[in-house]
Nucleic acid binder design. Structure first.
Lengths: 176, 176
DNA sequence: CAATTTGTTCAATAAAAAATGAACAAAAAA
DNA sequence: TTTTTTGTTCATTTTTTATTGAACAAATTG
């Protein structure tokens, strides 16, 4: 089918591209819902969902065609998933395109995701808390008393959050 | 100070409004960071942060002035926090304005937040999974085999997530 | 009563996040 | 070599989300 010229950003389930079957639709929907709860972009969830349910590795090309994504979204989404360890590349003999498959080990996945989220958002919260602890002493009487209690509370919250992480990961790990 | 006429949407730390002290600034910053990780709006985090560290209940008025919020944001943010159980109203004698204080019991807070997030986003995921389970049987050989495994995996993930919730809440509860 | 304060609602606007697609580069095929 | 395929990057556009502030209502004060 070599008519040449135009860029092949193939249409929805376009030329020679199977439309999504009911199971694929439902599974993708599930991941999209999940992604909303986690604040991840829909396109990434769609890509992961399709890779997850697909019985063979897929090239970017096919993700674009069947999910109606732009090249840009597909490329960026795949990179994001790879960085997260949620997708990996697969060599397919006789096809020069890179193929992708889902990595489905929940333990690693969740672990990396949590770490990424937590590290980017909480980086220096420990240092900040320490700093606040000293600043609090400079407050006038009334306020100081209350503030000291609150800062203690914050530190306790932080401690519990840290205690929780490994536990959460262990439970998730049970699911393989 | 009754010159009349203009709406009192008071300026930053405006007339007769104490600017935020260093401790308040830092604590608010902490909550704002936290809110980003959880995908909550900044204004809500600011309100909660100031209520949390303040040693006395505050009227909406003061939140607007010291945090430089619009009336709308303040009103909506406070309602959101109340619905979540993260803030409550307090009666202050001789002042007709409603005053607010932070509710700092992490167990309830986290519990309600998780429930809210999960219920709104996952509502019918159980039913969906059941439906997928039946649909999978209609797939052609190759695909069916793989899909059955994946669906089993999804069900296992769901089970683990459910197991985890009470545990997480229990640990958080230890912090009072 | 009229004037003022307190607070809510919601259409309009601003800000942030995600998706697009054109421009480009590298590798492979013809 | 030229052409085509495969893929990345990033400025622009679209979509989504959050904030604003004007209009309004209810309660309070004088």
């Amino acid at each position: 089918m070599s008519v040449g010229f135009q860029d092949k950003t193939v249409a929805p389930g376009g030329p020679g591209m199977a439309p999504l079957n009911p199971v694929e639709v439902e599974v993708i929907h599930l991941f999209v819902q999940f992604s909303r709860a986690l604040g991840q972009p829909r396109s990434v969830a769609e890509i992961y969902g399709l890779l997850f349910i697909s019985h063979r590795p897929l090239p970017m090309n096919e993700l674009i065609g069947r999910l109606e994504l732009s090249k840009g979204s597909a490329s960026q989404g795949l990179r994001y998933l790879q960085d997260l360890g949620a997708a990996r590349t697969v060599y397919v003999a006789g096809d020069r395109r890179t193929h992708y498959e889902a990595v489905a080990e929940l333990r690693n996945l969740a672990g990396r995701f949590l770490r990424q989220q937590i590290l980017t958002h909480f980086q220096d919260s420990g240092a900040r808390l320490a700093h606040i602890t000293t600043q609090v002493e400079k407050l006038p009487g009334e306020e100081r008393k209350h503030a000291i209690g609150r800062v203690k509370m914050l530190r306790s919250w932080e401690k519990n959050a840290k205690r929780m992480l490994p536990l959460v990961l262990r439970i998730l790990g049970n699911g393989r």
